[in-house]
Simulated scan of single mutants.
Amino acid sequence: MSPPTRSSISFRGSSQIISEFFEYSVNSILYQRGIYPSDDFKSVKKYGLTLLVTHDEDIKAYIRKFMTQLHKWIINDKVSTFVLVIVNKNTGETVERWQFNIAINQEEEGEQSKQKSIEDIQREIQAIIRQITASVTFLPTLEVNDYTFNILVYADSSVNLPNNNEWIDSQDSKLVNNSESVKFKSFSTNEHKIDTLVSYKLDK
Rank of each mutant, 00 (worst) to 15 (best):
T5H: 12
S28N: 11
S7F: 08
E57T: 11
I104A: 11
E20W: 00
P3H: 09
S179D: 08
G92Y: 13
S80W: 01
T94P: 14
S186E: 09
D39Q: 15
M1C: 05
Q16Y: 08
N27Y: 00
Y47L: 04
I168F: 12
A127D: 14
D203H: 13
G48V: 06
S8C: 07
K174G: 00
K183F: 02
K46P: 02
D146T: 10
V83E: 10
A61M: 09
K46H: 07
D172A: 01
Q16P: 00
T91I: 04
W98Q: 04
N150A: 08
I18K: 00
Y200W: 14
F22I: 12
K78S: 05
S25W: 00
G13L: 10
S173C: 01
D172H: 03
P3A: 08
N101S: 07
V53R: 12
V53L: 03
E96Q: 15
Q115N: 13
P4G: 03
T133H: 12
T141D: 14
L175K: 08
E108N: 09
S28F: 00
I168H: 14
T91Q: 09
F149C: 07
Y147C: 06
I125Y: 07
D58T: 10
T94M: 04
I132M: 11
S14E: 05
I17A: 02
S14L: 01
L152H: 08
V159G: 09
K60E: 14
I18G: 01
V26R: 04
V85C: 12
V26I: 15
K72N: 05
S2D: 13
V176D: 10
I29W: 06
I59E: 15
Q106N: 11
A61P: 03
G92V: 10
S173A: 10
L152C: 08
A134R: 14
N164R: 00
V182W: 03
L51S: 12
D146R: 13
K45V: 03
K114D: 14
S8K: 14
T94E: 06
Q115K: 13
I74A: 03
T133L: 05
E109L: 12
I75H: 02
H55Y: 06
T68Y: 10
L49E: 14
F41N: 10
P37E: 11
S43R: 07
Q112E: 15
T54W: 10
E143W: 10
S117G: 11
S38K: 12
R130G: 02
A61L: 09
V159Y: 10
N27W: 00
L161I: 04
I102D: 06
E166Q: 13
R97A: 05
P162N: 01
T91P: 03
Y200G: 06
V144R: 12
S14P: 04
Y36N: 12
K193N: 04
S10K: 06
E191V: 01
D169L: 08
